[in-house]
């Protein structure tokens, strides 16, 4: 209990900790919302791929001194397009195309980052260091959250129908491919911001674990997004507290907390939990 008091004292005292807390909350909200669509569309692997594929974009942005969002979005969308192309134009299945493209991008990014090492810290990019978030990063994060919220509110109906019944959407003339790539673009933006809190390697966990927890507990898309965002935020805050208190890396601390929540839902969810199911049977 004393450590919680210390954490709150720290929050009052240190600007960096306040920035970290706000960033964690903002990233938690956006990853819960976008993650819901990722898992409903069966795109967990794609989410993992895009998050890895932005690495060369991050490196190039550092090298050229341009905005990191710009570099990352460019490579994120490029990866999504390449995956689409390989799937369409070869006999290979989608997951194979994803595996080839994202590992190649990640490898390229790794080399580029080591070339640009003076300016960046690879370890922080890979595993996140929310305690080192600058005020500028915080502003970027807030802008991305605004984009995510606007995107989901404006295109809620299109996101719902393309996730639920893509054929129906196509049959009435909706540009479903355009929706797919728009979602991929937003996903890359989320990825770049989540990179600060959990790092590239663990972003997929922020996208799918809270959303999967919410999926077990809800029956409506809107509820699922809200519950996912809540789990994501709570995990981020608890993870941040652990990171501060025990000096753990923030990414793994946040992801493990999210995984604990998922395990609880998996076991005890009133509708789909395995314990409850056993009782009924």
């Amino acid at each position: 209990m004393r450590s919680i008091g210390l954490f709150i004292d720290g929050l009052m005292q240190y600007n960096f900790l306040q920035t970290a807390l706000i960033t964690s909350i903002l990233v938690g909200i956006m990853s819960g919302i976008i993650g819901s669509f990722i898992i409903l569309r069966g795109m967990s692997l794609m989410g993992d791929a895009i998050s890895h594929a932005v690495l060369p974009g991050v490196a190039v942005a550092y090298m050229l001194g341009i905005n990191i969002l710009l570099g990352a979005s460019l490579f994120g969308i490029l990866a999504a397009l390449l995956i689409g192309l390989v799937t369409l134009k070869s006999k290979l299945k989608n997951d194979t195309a994803i595996g080839i493209v994202f590992s190649a991008f990640f490898a390229l990014g790794f080399i580029l980052i080591s070339l640009a090492e003076s300016a960046t810290n690879l370890h922080h990019i890979l595993f996140g260091n929310v305690l080192a978030v600058s005020d500028n990063d915080l502003i970027t994060t807030a802008i991305v959250l605004a984009i995510v919220l606007i995107f989901v509110v404006v295109f809620y109906k299109e996101l719902l129908i393309t996730s639920f019944d893509n054929t129906f959407a196509q049959a009435y003339g909706l540009k479903t491919q355009l929706m797919h790539y728009a979602l991929m673009l937003v996903l890359t933006l989320v990825t770049v911001t989540a990179l600060q809190t959990v790092g590239i390697i663990l972003i997929v966990a922020m996208l799918i674990t809270p959303a999967a927890t919410a999926y077990l507990l809800t029956n409506r898309l809107s509820h699922m997004m809200i519950v996912a965002a809540i789990f994501s935020v709570v995990s981020s805050v608890i993870g941040l507290y652990m990171s501060y208190t025990f000096n753990w890396a923030s990414g793994p601390a946040i992801v493990l907390t999210a995984a604990v929540f998922f395990s609880l839902a998996f076991l005890f969810s009133p509708k789909q939990g395995i314990i409850f199911k056993k009782k009924i049977n």
Binding site: L40, G42, K157, L160, I161, S163, F164, D165, F168, A169, Y172, L174, Y215, T218, N219, R220, L221, H223, M224
Partner: peptide, 18 residues
């Protein structure tokens, strides 16, 4: 279709207005 999608009967019918 994915029948585990978090949507109820009413909202499914409502997508017919989209």
């Amino acid at each position: 279709l994915d029948l585990t999608f978090p949507i109820n009967v009413f909202d499914t019918v409502l997508t017919g207005t989209y």
